[in-house]
Design a protein around this nucleic acid. Sequence first.
RNA 1: UCCUCGGUAGCUCAAUCUGGCAGAGCGGCCGGCUGUUAACCGGUUGGUUGCAGGUUCGAGUCCUGCCCGAGGAGCCA
Length: 445
Amino acid sequence: MPKIIRIQDIAQHVGEEVTLQGWLYHRTDKGKLQFLRVRDGTGYAQCVVFKKDVSPEVFEAARSLTQESSLIVTGTVRQDARAPGLPGGHELSVTGLQVLQVAQDYPIQPKEHGVEFLMDHRHLWIRSQRQWAVLRVRATVIRAIRDWLDDHGFVNLDTPILTPAACEGTTTLFETDYFGTPAYLAQSGQLYNEANIYAFGRVYCFGPTFRAEKSKTRRHLTEFWMVEPEAAFCDLDQLMEIEEQFVSYIVQTCLRERAQELALLGRDTGHLEKVVPPFPRISYDEALEMLGEIREQTDDEELKGLLEIEWGEDFGSPHETELTKRFEKPVFVYGYPTRAKAFYMEPWPGRPEVSKSVDLLAPEGYGEIIGGSERISDPDLLLERLREWGLPREAFEWYIDLRRYGSVPHSGFGLGIERTVTWICGLDHLRETIPFPRMLKRVYP
RNA sequence: UCCUCGGUAGCUCAAUCUGGCAGAGCGGCCGGCUGUUAACCGGUUGGUUGCAGGUUCGAGUCCUGCCCGAGGAGCCA
């Protein structure tokens, strides 16, 4: 039996007789000639069946193939510029074909479909080329994240998903029954990360995160993946340096290793090539000024209304979108008002109404992909904040301990995987960046 | 929770404004074609018009209520 190869390696086997194991993606019948487009998970390759080259049984078997039928096909690899596929440029001259199963009435066609139909068939939709490409970029983003952090001294220590109380006391959490007492699905591992840095210096957790917010937009999931690095002896400036190195590495790795997928998606990679350190840094106050200018310059009354903001309020999506349109690279916005952010953020020296917080906004209108800050290191200040925020001291006793035994300046951030993949792939909705998205109106399949 | 848009064949849509035989393309099936790129050509198959009620000689179309979905706001990564 000829050697079984993967389609991604097809160019290394020109002139050899090889076997592919996969599924029929598309078939064109020209009478005495058939084009089978086969996918095997690593790529897509065209297999050509000439009636004169194969037995009548093989030719008829090929004619019986429907979309998504499973098959094992053998043939000789030939270089041909006309051959479509990924990587493409090579095709198989079929000599033998074994049909494992003829699929009946596969619902998804290679044409436009509606969102609801595709989401109902997500378990099949992920076989489609665009979805395949997006999810391969996702896998590369995840590997780049782990590689960079592992190579820069961050120890991977994952934090619990079942937690006793609200981490930040703000967003709505999913409640579960934990042997008779309520427990909540984690919205962040940050507080546990802060414990871990005192044992390991630099750490990160990477896992699913849950928000029971009734958000109904293209940038929200109820279950999403977040990587949260945290570092001891790290102030806000050092944090921004880490973030820009980290994000640049992720983007450049995708450009290098997933060029084919990004091309398939029609991504203009020129934007991504500019993502190298340093990133522009503007303060919340400067951002507010820019937003004021944008409001003055626009004639769009609706936009004027959406951009209305007073000092002290956090930015909404419209603000972020307009700000990032003014930059070619991701932009840091730092120094948000204390009352707009979480209780644990270190105050700005001499300006207690401002926090040492920083968000990283992706360009081209994609908005926030990272939120981070320097954390409060003084136990008395932390106690004061817990009181001001109305949080129960008992639940945070262990967290206060961290400031009692060798407290140091420390900082960390959380990067949303799906938003990052959405930006890198140039998509308009993040639901395609995770195999099975969980959204307000979607828990099936 | 609020605002806007939508629901017609397996899929994508037309017919809705101005009530009058339920339509097309794709898919499926049959036939033709040796370079197709979501092929093309001929034939054929295909309907609880989201649900319930109302107006009317007659409702996919008008009215009322409900259900479902999408986009946006808020919240956030």
